[in-house]
Design a protein around this nucleic acid. Structure first.
Lengths: 157, 157
DNA sequence: AACAACATATAAGAGCTCTGATGTTATGCG
DNA sequence: CGCATAACATCAGAGCTCTTATATGTTGTT
C-alpha cells in the first residue's frame, strides 16, 4: 500500500482502529505483543509460550504436564510440545516416577532458572510499556475485560 | 488441580486474574477467543485467520498477497499459507497476471462469498458477547488500549 | 478381585506464524 | 540500454496450538 493502493488503511486507522471489531483488535494486539516478546527473547531462543511455561514451573515446582496445561489454559498435548522443547534445550527436568506411576513432575534445571532470570528482566520492561498510557481506571477496565474474555466458557455461546 | 493440587489457582483467580501480568491476560484472552471463533466456524471448516482473510478480501477485492499481509499485520509468508488453504477450499480465486506481471490478485469465489456470509453471522454474535458487560467508557478504554498495543512499533523498545 | 471410569502422557495430522533464502518482475539511475 | 535495487511470491524449517486417537496407570464400584 505504501505506494500501490491508497484506499487500504493502515493498522490503527478507521475501521482498523478504534472503530474496528474487538475480535480483530484483540487478535492483532496479541499477535503484536507476542512478536515483541519473542524478539526481546530471541537472543535466548525462548518463545512467549516457553517463557510462560518457565514462569509457571518456577512458581509451582514439581507441577505435572496436565496441571500445567490447565494453568495455562492449553491442551495437554500443546503443553507437551512446549515442555518437550524446553527439555531438549536443557531448561527443565522431568522427574518421572513420583510416588504414583504415570505423572511426570516438572522442575527447572539450574540452566532454566538462570535463563528465566534473564528473560524476566526483558519481559518486565515490555509489561511496563503495556500499562504506560493507562490511568488506574482504564487499566482496571482492561484487566477485568481480559479476564472476562479469557474465562468466558465456550459452552455459554 | 480439580483434585491434586489445591495450591494452583484456576484461570481468573488471584495472580491469574485481575492482578496478573497484562501480557498473560492478553495472551489468554486472545487464545480463548480464537478458540471460540474457530468452534463457532468449525462446521464450515474455517479458522479465525481464514475468516479475517475472507473479510479483508471482501472489503478490498483484487488485493494482492503483500497488501493483504500488511493489512492483517502478518508476514507475506503467513498470508500465503492462509490464502493457499482458502484456494484449496475453493473460497477464493487468484488472478495471476494482472496488467503487470508478478502480482497475484485475490478475489472471493461465489462459494467464498456464500461461506463468508454464513460465518459472519456467527462471529457477529460472538463480537456482541465481547462487549456485553462493558460500559461505553470501558469499551472505549479497551479499544484504545488494544489499538495502542497493536500499533506499538517493535522498534521503540 | 475384576471391571468400568477417569487421568495422564504421547503421537499423528492440520493450520497458523515466524525467520531465512531464492527466484522473478519492476523501477530507477548511470 | 544495462545493471542495481526494491517489491512480490514462494519454498524450507521451526515452533505453537488444536483435534483425534492410543496406551498406560489410578480409582472406585460391584
Amino acid at each position: 500500500m505504501r505506494k500501490g493502493n491508497p484506499s487500504i488503511p493502515s493498522a490503527g486507522e478507521g475501521k482498523r482502529g478504534e472503530e474496528g471489531y474487538l475480535g480483530y483488535l484483540l487478535r492483532q494486539a496479541a499477535g503484536a505483543y507476542r512478536l515483541k516478546v519473542e524478539r526481546a527473547l530471541d537472543e535466548f531462543g525462548v518463545t512467549q509460550a516457553q517463557f510462560a511455561a518457565l514462569i509457571m514451573i518456577s512458581a509451582y515446582p514439581g507441577i505435572s504436564n496436565a496441571d500445567l496445561a490447565r494453568l495455562a489454559v492449553l491442551t495437554p498435548q500443546t503443553v507437551s510440545v512446549i515442555v518437550g522443547n524446553l527439555e531438549k534445550a536443557g531448561s527443565l527436568v522431568r522427574r518421572p516416577h513420583a510416588v504414583h506411576g504415570r505423572i511426570q513432575h516438572l522442575d527447572l534445571s539450574d540452566n532454566g532458572r538462570a535463563l528465566l532470570k534473564k528473560c524476566r528482566e526483558r519481559v518486565y520492561r515490555l509489561e511496563g510499556e503495556l500499562t504506560a498510557g493507562l490511568s488506574a481506571e482504564e487499566e482496571r477496565a482492561v484487566r477485568l475485560w481480559l479476564v472476562a474474555v479469557a474465562t468466558a466458557d465456550a459452552a455459554q455461546a
